[in-house]
């Protein structure tokens, strides 16, 4: 059974690289949303898709990644879903804020596909296992 992953990202290139890498990693069912509002309405529906892990970009149109994170953590149903901040920002403040609001990990987007593959593999392995346990 494929694992459900939600990835909120507005950059189409980033989504393209992500899907390319993830598709090679194994049996993952990932859904992407381009902004906070559509991501939240997906989560509200609760019917077809329940994510087992959420990846959030920080700089998004409308709501930013932190706001989505806060929403996720405020909902009982998603309280324990691993949330990974997935961003190109290496700003200390962003890192601190992420953990403060309840992110499980802070992942800086690597700039090569190989690194991306490695990083995502490690992350998935760790956090999806963790969730199951």
């Amino acid at each position: 059974m494929p694992r459900n992953i939600l990835y909120v990202e507005d950059n189409q290139d980033a989504i393209a690289f992500f899907s390319r890498v993830v598709n090679k990693l194994g049996d993952y069912n990932f859904v992407t949303r381009e902004d906070g509002t559509s991501a939240i309405s997906l989560l509200e529906e609760k019917k077809d898709f329940t994510p087992e892990m959420i990846l959030l970009d920080i700089n998004l149109p409308g709501m930013n990644g932190f706001e989505i994170l806060q929403y996720v953590r405020s909902k009982t149903a998603y309280k324990h879903v691993p949330v990974i901040m997935f961003t190109s920002s290496d700003d200390n403040g962003d890192v601190q804020k992420s953990y403060e609001y309840g992110a499980n990990a802070y992942l800086i987007k690597p700039d090569s596909l190989q690194s991306l593959k490695e990083v995502l593999q490690d992350t998935f392995n760790f956090w999806l296992k963790h969730n199951v346990a």
Partner: peptide, 17 residues
Amino acid sequence: SHDLRTPLSSIKNYTEI
């Protein structure tokens, strides 16, 4: 600089592809 990173990353990644 921040905004340059994303397209730069695309250049590199597409080249890799």
